[in-house]
Simulated assay, not measured.
Amino acid sequence: MAHERIDVDLPLAKVYEYLSDPTYFPHFFERIDHVNKVNSQTFEFATQMGGKDYQWTTNIIDNLRNTRFAWITINGNLNQTGTIRFTPLDNGERTRVDFSLDYRTFFGEPEEELAEFIQALPAQMKKDLQRFKEEAEADTFKQNADDTLEEIEAADEAEEEEAAA
């Protein structure tokens, strides 16, 4: 399990808006390739390690607006749980983010690439949250996340057209 804390120079409501929507995660989490929203509570995650695809579906288990956001894996070949806690600083002008994230296999010991992925989680999470902070504070986060979403949607459409041909 990894736990990181970062202070963001943005109001709590804005930070919560960004971090309580897992579809934004691939934009700043380098090791998550894609998140698809199934419904308001369910999200499908995907990544690739060592040439192997990992996919898992999560459900939101706690969503207390501007306070806490948490999810847990309900199926897939990678088990992920996460909790984000939000604390207002300086009368709500800044926000402290406490982020906990854990990956596990469902059965047995992980293969080498996955074991390395899990072992590197704390250092990677620190980099990912710093990237989030920089882009959110520069007000480029939402724009860049929307651009990434458009690229993913275009790739999905191209795959569908290719499959139909």
Rank of each mutant, 00 (worst) to 15 (best):
D139L: 14
I61N: 09
E153P: 01
N66A: 07
A138E: 07
R96W: 02
A115F: 01
Y54K: 03
G51M: 03
T58C: 14
A2C: 07
E93Y: 06
A46H: 12
I61K: 09
R96N: 08
E30M: 09
L89F: 03
T57H: 05
K127Y: 08
L129N: 06
G82R: 06
E93G: 10
A163I: 09
L12Y: 04
N66Y: 11
K127M: 12
A163W: 12
D53V: 06
S20G: 07
I6N: 05
I74V: 15
E113V: 00
D21P: 00
E113M: 02
Q41H: 10
L19C: 07
R5Y: 04
K37N: 04
R65F: 08
Y18Q: 01
F28K: 00
E44T: 13
E116D: 12
L10W: 03
D33E: 14
V38R: 11
E160A: 15
I61Q: 06
A163Q: 15
R94L: 09
E44L: 13
M49W: 02
R85F: 08
V8K: 04
L78H: 02
K52M: 11
T105W: 00
F106I: 02
D9R: 15
S20F: 03
D21F: 00
E17K: 15
V15K: 02
K37S: 09
E17R: 15
Q124K: 10
Y16F: 14
N59I: 14
G92K: 11
T47A: 09
E137Y: 12
E161I: 12
M125R: 05
K142R: 14
A123V: 06
D9M: 09
D146N: 04
A70G: 14
A70I: 11
K126S: 14
L19V: 05
K52S: 11
D102A: 13
F45A: 03
R65P: 07
I72M: 11
T47E: 03
F141P: 02
F86S: 09
D156V: 11
E162C: 07
A13D: 12
E159K: 15
V15H: 01
T42Q: 13
P22S: 10
R65E: 15
L101F: 05
I152M: 05
I6H: 06
E112R: 06
P11I: 03
I60R: 08
F141T: 02
I61H: 04
N77K: 07
A70S: 15
D139T: 10
N63R: 13
F99L: 13
K126R: 14
V15T: 12
R104V: 01
Q119C: 02
I152D: 05
A123M: 11
T67D: 14
Q55H: 10
R131S: 14
H3G: 07
